[in-house]
């Protein structure tokens, strides 16, 4: 998919574990794993909002468009 999820990069920058992030944004660790591994087909605005809030970043820091992938 042309949309790349850089969630693991942001998590490493903020030094936050998957379980802790999942708990803070209110989703299951399994769903967070789906998002991290790029298997997700859609992200709700509410989830994105919480991710940006917890990781103190912008949507563009988490999602990236790469041509031809």
């Amino acid at each position: 998919m042309a949309i790349i999820v850089n969630l693991d990069v942001m998590m490493a920058k903020r030094k936050i574990s998957s379980n802790e992030l999942a708990e803070k944004i209110g989703i299951t660790p399994a769903n967070l794993s789906v998002l991290k591994t790029g298997k997700a087909k859609a992200v709700r605005f509410s989830t994105l909002e919480k991710l940006c809030e917890v990781l103190a970043c912008q949507p563009g820091d988490i999602l990236e468009y790469r041509d031809g992938e």
Binding site: I27, L32, V34, A40, K41, A42, V43, R44
Partner: peptide
């Protein structure tokens, strides 16, 4: 259903 399951 698959799309819904893979919506986070």
């Amino acid at each position: 259903r698959e799309e819904n399951d893979l919506t986070v």
